[in-house]
């Protein structure tokens, strides 16, 4: 990892405060090292896109940000990740609370086999965000509106979430994440299983969500990264190659690996 490159990148920061700060993050699966020390900051109310060829470690990195890697037995994380200056790998820190603050949307839409209504209220119920029926109703309506799904499903809230189309399911999953009122939302290739129209919906949605949340999104699709993100990080073989303003990365990459990737020489 070239420190100077990073420092240069860090200069091009927004005026927003840092929300998530990763320092020298290394991830091991058993004896195999998947990330070789990643340094990156995510600023409040921005969309950071993580791009790179398959197996480069971008999803792995994303999952370290809300400790979803804890569910994998052989996975080990080194380094420091700070959320609002607080180390999220501190043994004293509570992982359940962390995940309430850092929500996640997965690659494949995974609505629970429950009604649409229950899918949304699942998180708020867990965290005690509401107690009365009307409060829940309001959360459901607000979340679904934010996810741009309200008009499509408002008449069938009691139908199972698994009955929706793929794009709707993914928006339901976003609404489900939003309903918990997290501070950060992580999205792991949220559009890879969707058709172009559904993808466009979601991309629009991400742009709107930026006003209230900090978002990190992993994507395979470079156009998508260009469209939705303010800054982009390029990963290659477990290294963070470079990070910077999206426009700059796509028009004037500093590293030839980045250039090779965005011009489609490999991927």
């Amino acid at each position: 990892m070239d420190t100077t490159t990073l420092t240069k990148n860090m200069e091009a920061v927004s005026t927003q405060p840092v929300k998530v700060c990763a320092r020298d993050v290394k991830v091991f699966y058993g004896a195999k090292r998947a990330l070789h020390g990643v340094n990156v900051d995510v600023y409040q109310n921005e969309v950071l896109a993580l791009i790179g060829p398959s197996g480069c470690g971008k999803s792995t990195f994303l999952r370290t940000l809300n400790r979803m890697n804890d569910t994998i037995d052989i996975c080990r994380v080194e380094g420091k990740i700070l959320l609002d200056g607080e180390d999220i790998y501190d043994p004293k820190l509570d992982v359940v609370q962390l995940r309430a603050r850092v929500g996640m949307v997965f690659q494949k839409p995974n609505p629970f086999p429950k009604s649409i209504y229950d899918n949304i209220t699942y998180g708020p119920k867990l965290h005690g965000l509401a107690t009365r029926k009307d409060e829940f109703d309001e959360i459901v309506e607000r979340s679904l509106k934010r996810a741009g799904l309200w008009n499509e499903v408002k008449d069938r809230l009691q139908e199972p979430g698994t009955g929706l189309s793929g794009g709707q399911q993914q928006r339901l999953c976003i609404a489900r994440a939003v309903a918990v009122s997290p501070e950060v939302i992580l999205m792991d290739e949220p559009c890879s299983a969707l058709d172009p129209i559904a993808t466009a919906h979601i991309e629009e949605l991400i742009d709107e969500l930026r006003e209230s949340f900090t978002i990190a999104i992993v994507t395979h699709n470079m156009q998508q990264a260009a469209r939705v993100s303010q800054r982009t990080a390029f990963f290659h073989l477990g290294d963070l190659v470079e990070v910077g303003n999206t426009e700059e990365i796509f028009t004037n990459p500093r590293d030839e690996r980045t250039q090779g990737y965005i011009t489609g020489r490999y991927g």
Binding site: M68, T71, R99, G103, F106
Partner: peptide, 14 residues
């Protein structure tokens, strides 16, 4: 499927 468990854990469920 594991994805359902992930979805729930990702929302901060124990």
């Amino acid at each position: 499927p594991q994805s359902l468990r992930d979805g729930s854990l990702g929302l901060g469920a124990t």
